[in-house]
Amino acid sequence: MSALNIKKGSTSHSAYDLRSALSEVEESHTLAVIVENEPGVLARVIGLFSGRGYNIDSLTVAEVDHTGHRSRITIVTRGTPAVIDQIEAQLSRMVPVHAVQDLTAEGPSVQRELALVKVAGRGDHRIEALRLAEIFRANVVDSTLESFVFEMTGTPEKIDAFAELMRPLGLVEIARTGVAGLKRGA
């Protein structure tokens, strides 16, 4: 999906110019947004994304400062550099937003996601799943004679890779939290 949902090559038989001015390559960025934890604040942030045609690849949110009532929303989004800048500016000007960090642009960061992966199978498949889980440092958090639920944390890519390996071994379903991230260093 193009970042602005604009069809190219449209004619001027319209009250609007439908040709996209932005032809640069899309990048993935992780944004950390510190907000006032008040009713509707998440809807406000998400509404900005849907209303202006931006993408959300993943989203996590939780209150991180109980006394100051601050929540941290971590959003993984995609867009051309101009669109990413625009998203940051649009977020920053919202009244309940205290700060916006672009973890991708502002130097190195740590990004982690938690996943629960259910795999069902017997025999060799079951043994292979367990062996791979060990390599990926996934823990077994539930087990029956015919299934495992693995818990793992890592980058989204690592989880993707693990899920891909589990597919032929009997992947049933997967639950993911979305990315949480922090800047590296003090």
Binding site: D85, A89, R93
Partner: peptide, 11 residues
């Protein structure tokens, strides 16, 4: 006064 107006349409 609104940073989001800058570079929104025209660089």
């Amino acid at each position: 006064i609104d940073p989001s107006s800058i570079n929104k349409v025209i660089h």
